[in-house]
């Protein structure tokens, strides 16, 4: 049996490979042939296998990442993730290849462990932001251009990157929110649905006819293009309050135009109500006195008593109420 036969003989190949990977000698004179220094043909073959597997793995992983994230994550962020995954694969491959190059990695591992712990502590927030960013991109509760309310912040989504989300508030201020905060926050996306509802509470006087008011408001809404006919607007007397009759108005509108509809309609409703003789009430309070109290009050007003004396408070010596 020749040396070549031994090298390619069935199960021995794997045993030899395992030995080479561990940096040992196989006892096979061909594999153990030294090229330079301690570097043997076996090491060369092992390195070639490691490089081939690394390239293959990198291609598989990047293809998988792209396939999974395409359409869900911004292309720029997908590229970043592919690069990150590639560097991780390269680093692991380097560690695996170290025994072949006769590099002692125990020192690197110890140092790496210490550095790893330090970096782990330091990058705890960054890592949580990164993971939250990836989850946000997959779940996609918000998209660029959406009008959102995240906790107390309202505005347009400018970008959703791996670490943070940029929101442009209505007054033009750019706000950066870490993704971990966004992910754990209550997110209200105002435009994720094609239509949304807005409401008004309109007070009218008790002297006005609520039916007339409802008819006027319904007519005004029917003339506005962005007030949807389906679902139909909802109008009803909601409350008989202290100062007037509260009419509730709930209108559906296309999400992209709800603000236009909301601002235009309220003023138009007010103008049409006035034109129809229906007006908003002024705050007013009607006081009722018993007969005796009223007479007593009239006497006191006509007398020369001070205000403090009338209401039964001891008058102040100087500068008091008169």
């Amino acid at each position: 049996m020749t040396e070549t036969d031994t090298l390619f003989n069935g199960s021995e190949i794997f045993e030899n490979l395992e030995t080479i990977m561990n940096g040992g000698t196989t006892g096979n004179s061909l594999l153990d042939t030294v090229i330079f220094g301690e570097f043997t043909i076996g090491n060369l073959i092992a390195l070639a296998i490691i490089i081939a597997v690394t390239i293959l793995l990198k291609k598989i992983v990047s293809t998988l990442i792209r396939r999974v994230l395409t359409g869900k994550v911004d292309v720029k962020n997908t590229d970043g993730l592919v690069k990150l995954a590639s560097w991780v694969i390269y680093f692991v491959a380097f560690l695996v290849a170290c025994p072949q190059l006769h590099i002692d990695i125990s020192g690197i591992l110890v140092a790496g462990g210490i550095v790893g712990v330090a970096i782990g502590f330091a990058s705890q927030n960054t890592l949580s932001n990164l993971i939250a960013g990836i989850l946000l991109m997959i779940e996609r509760p918000i998209n660029v251009g959406d009008v959102v309310i995240i906790n107390e912040t309202e505005g347009y989504v400018e970008s959703v990157s791996l670490l943070s989300t940029l929101i442009k508030t209505y007054d033009g201020i750019l706000l950066r929110i870490p993704n971990s905060n966004v992910f754990s926050a209550d997110i209200r996306n105002c435009v994720s649905n094609v239509a949304r509802r807005f409401s008004y509470g309109i007070d009218i006087r008790y002297s006005d006819n609520a039916d007339t008011a409802l008819k006027i408001i319904r007519d005004t809404i029917s003339r506005h293009p962005y007030a949807l006919t389906e679902p139909a607007p909802s109008l009803y007397v909601d409350d008989l309050g202290a100062h007037g009759i509260r009419v509730a108005v709930k209108i559906w509108s296309p999400s992209a135009y709800w603000w236009t509809a909301r601002t235009e309609l309220l003023w138009q409703i007010f103008k049409d109500l006035r034109k129809g003789g229906v007006d908003v009430p002024f705050n007013q309070l009607t006081l009722w006195y018993g007969k005796d109290d009223a007479e007593k009050l009239q006497e006191n007003i006509e007398s020369d008593k001070s205000a403090a004396e009338i209401i039964g408070i001891k008058a102040e010596p100087e500068g008091g109420m008169k």
């Binding site: 649905n193 094609v194 239509a195 949304r196 029917s222 003339r223 293009p225 962005y226 007030a227 949807l228 006919t229 389906e230 679902p231 559906w252 296309p254």
Partner: peptide, 19 residues
């Protein structure tokens, strides 16, 4: 002609239509 819109279907799955 006067312009009006409506929602066909639900707010989640539906479409805005010229009505």
């Amino acid at each position: 002609a006067r312009t009006k819109f409506a929602l066909y279907g639900t707010a989640t799955r539906g479409v805005i239509v010229r009505d």
